[in-house]
Amino acid sequence: MMTAKIQIIIGIILIVALMAIINMIRKRRLELKYALSWLVAIAFVLVLDCFPSLLNKISRILGIWAPVNMIFFLGFCFSLMIIFVLTVTLSRMSERVRKLSQAVALNEEKIEELMKELSEEAS
């Protein structure tokens, strides 16, 4: 079903992507926590790429006739999952940013108040 040629091409793409992600984690441009799902996904596809017969087995277990459809289906579910997790993270982030900026505003006012008191004392 899959020729050795496409198997190698897919393998190279996956390994390049894997290296790119690891490199970004190394340079701290990507947090390991959020990159984990991508790493797992790449590992999973890499395994399938090396052993294409697994694909047929899994799709038969799931009751999907064409293995290609299973890839589309699983890929779609996985993408949705990542997007949803991102939305949850975004909500939490915006809450934290809000709390932070409110604390900054309150502190700034306090500092100015103290500065005023200080300069009054000095004069």
Partner: peptide, 14 residues
């Protein structure tokens, strides 16, 4: 005037 200055725009609720 007594003012609290938000460093980013939070919207009316914030």
């Amino acid at each position: 005037l007594c003012v609290l200055n938000l460093p980013i725009n939070l919207g009316i609720g914030g």
